[in-house]
Amino acid sequence: MKKYFIPLIFSTFFFQFLQAQGCSDAGICSIGTLQENPDKAAKNQIEVSTILGAGESDTQYFSPSVTYTRNFNERWDAAAKITSSFASGSFGQRGSIGDAYLLVNYKPANGKIFKWSYTAGAKIPFNRANLKINNHPLPLDYQSSLGTFDFLTAANLSYKKFDLNAALQIPVFNINANSYFAEYSGTADFPTTNLFERKPDMLFRTIYTITTKKITFKPNLLFIYHLGEDTYENIYGRRLSIAGSQGLTVNGNLISTYNLKAASIELSLATPFVVRDIRPDGLTRKYTVGISYKTRF
């Protein structure tokens, strides 16, 4: 079992970091789990999940996703994930497919106490963050992707019942074509994000695992630091920094997993304790409730 246990754990686990781009605040807490794989022969895992959440102003979200993980051997595995997001609020309802994530995970030979794992991958957007309703440009809160190609890398350390994770998400190539101007929108609830450019995120997470016969609980804290002020182009065509968009987000999250024979059901509840002053990327959630079903074969 251990042969497959760690790689599957880390590949799944890293998706929690990936969601930093999609849900930089509470949303990151409600995706993915540290799911043990009790099936020795299982080389594949499919996860179907959805998140319900409340965002800025009156925005509410429904965000389904699907993930496929392939375990090649005790050292290597890979995963692909597709996300989508449906937002509703004063602007109306807008939903679309969001991003694809492609990841490779490597676990070197480890000692029995300290176990390391490393992950690298990419996020690929399916749109340019300029979805509209009735020709009206929409803030990033209503976009299913931020329109950036990102490089992602992470390191994970397991020690007894603790897991510690550090990750970096860097926008490498920006195709964001968002054209939302607050001054033309009729509301001041969302900042201007015309031709938005986003800075990288750095993440740190610590998890404690409590195991019962059928249910595993994973209370955890997630720290995200946004490494710089994001920018946009104003109505005069000048690029400006968004003051207050840099800074720390701290989330609390509880993941509860009910284990079945070759599957599991997971519930994730999350909320932020500390948020950045300004959150133009639309990733902030007041709370999220995530549920997922995983099957192994």
Partner: peptide
Amino acid sequence: LFSLAVSFLMISCESEGELT
């Protein structure tokens, strides 16, 4: 299950609100 999930992800929707 996988096919249903993928199909659902492909759905795109748009409807007007108060501001649009």
